[in-house]
Design a protein around this nucleic acid. Structure first.
Lengths: 232, 232
DNA sequence: TAGCTTTCGCAAAACTTTCATAATTCTGTT
DNA sequence: AACAGAATTATGAAAGTTTTGCGAAAGCTA
């Protein structure tokens, strides 16, 4: 559920710096030390955005950009280029090749993070949101709190993540297996029926504060979260 | 009702990989370990698209392609070829022989899935649609909801799939046997008359919300879904 | 121990299938 | 045209099956 950032950069020092700082900001980080590796990693898991060095052995940053733009999954993925001071003049080229922003080395970490937030705000604002609201129900992801009709609502960790997932993608049906994938994690071996129990607990918690049950059971298919009953 | 993909590939590892991933994406998967078996399976049930390895024992991928193109049912079926890196130069030949796209091994799963979606988008976009509408009746396949004249309409799983099938291919008559095949699944042993009961229930549900009955009974032949009575 | 998560089992609910019978449509004949 | 009889479909109800809700117990982890 955290944003996944892919850093493609051949200088170890910068790689480490960025990894540390992005982690601290709550991103998941993928590291690639050259362009080819970057492309490979980008196709294994589509990043939410990409930091890419301009000058690299093998594939240049421009080339990486170009190739990423040719693929459907990464066509719209924000890319921020890192360029050394002398290369500044090329900035137009970088943006032409599909980068969304560029930043000159040496850069300050806060500056980079600010740029990143700016870029994300343009392309996928929901990743930055600390709180998601639907009607009178709101979930604060950073503070890990849920409020319903102004009242605090306590949920266990699993119910919290379940609600988070539902609030992020409401209205569509997820099978128990899909929910296990998305909420529990890929390689967790848990009985599918366990989902029922947590759905039940989430329902009970929500109902305990009045209002209708926003979770719709779809027989022989799974569950869906309906925002429509959460009146404002 | 899920898209049916036929994978023809002699390497077990890849076969398993593709089966797992296509299943997860909601496709039905047929597996063939050589060209001959692939052709056989393609004639038993016409796939929505085909993934076919280039180099295979017995029949090569090119030959499989060619033969599939000679048959009426598979003449237009999209085919994606899997080629090893060195064979890249032959790509033109592959496409000439009727493949719609090709992808080089080793490939990333998201990349393959993206290509598949692209190919389907060209050839049978309705398979990717989330909602199908005819007049005032709409069925949302992801949310698994049916709306009629703006109102929510609850259907049981079988009625839902039945309606899905009718909405996908309206205006033509299906025999009870064909409906059992398409809606219930190939290897289900159910009395043909059972279809009547479900048709009846679907009709009742639709009629309960006013409007005319869009299902036409064709005596001694089956049923057809008429969109014309679903005024806008 | 407290606070969760997971599994289990049973009852309730939702759905399917089959069957019997009523209703309809068709066919051939007068 | 009209009618009987045959064929086919509609439908209500019963029986059977599958799936879900829920309480409770057992298992984890800090």
């Amino acid at each position: 559920m955290k944003p996944y950032v892919l850093v493609i950069e051949d200088e170890d020092a910068i790689l480490t710096l960025l990894e540390y700082n992005f982690r601290k900001e709550g991103y998941e980080v993928g590291l690639a030390t050259d362009g080819e590796m970057g492309l490979l990693m980008a196709s294994e898991r589509t990043p939410d955005f990409i930091i890419c060095d301009w000058m690299m052995p093998k594939l240049s940053g421009v080339e990486v950009c170009r190739r990423l733009r040719r693929r459907d999954e990464t066509r719209a993925t924000p890319i921020i280029m890192l360029t050394a001071r002398g290369e500044e003049a090329d900035k137009v080229t970088g943006l032409d090749f599909g980068a969304d922003d560029y930043i000159v080395k040496p850069f300050s970490v806060p500056e980079l993070l600010a740029r990143v937030r700016a870029v994300i705000r343009r392309s996928a604002p929901s990743l930055l949101e600390d709180v998601i609201r639907h009607g009178t129900l709101e979930i604060d992801l950073k503070a890990m709190r849920v409020k319903y009709a102004g009242q605090d609502l306590h949920l266990g960790p699993t119910e919290f993540r379940l609600l988070e997932h539902f609030m992020r993608s409401p209205s569509r049906v997820y099978s128990r297996e899909q929910l296990l994938d998305k909420v529990w994690g890929r390689d967790v071996y848990v009985e599918a029926r366990t989902v029922d129990v947590h759905i039940g607990r989430l329902r009970k918690a929500l109902k305990s504060m009045g209002g209708h049950d926003p979770i719709r059971t779809v027989r022989s298919a799974g569950y869906a979260f309906e925002t429509s009953v959460l009146s404002d």
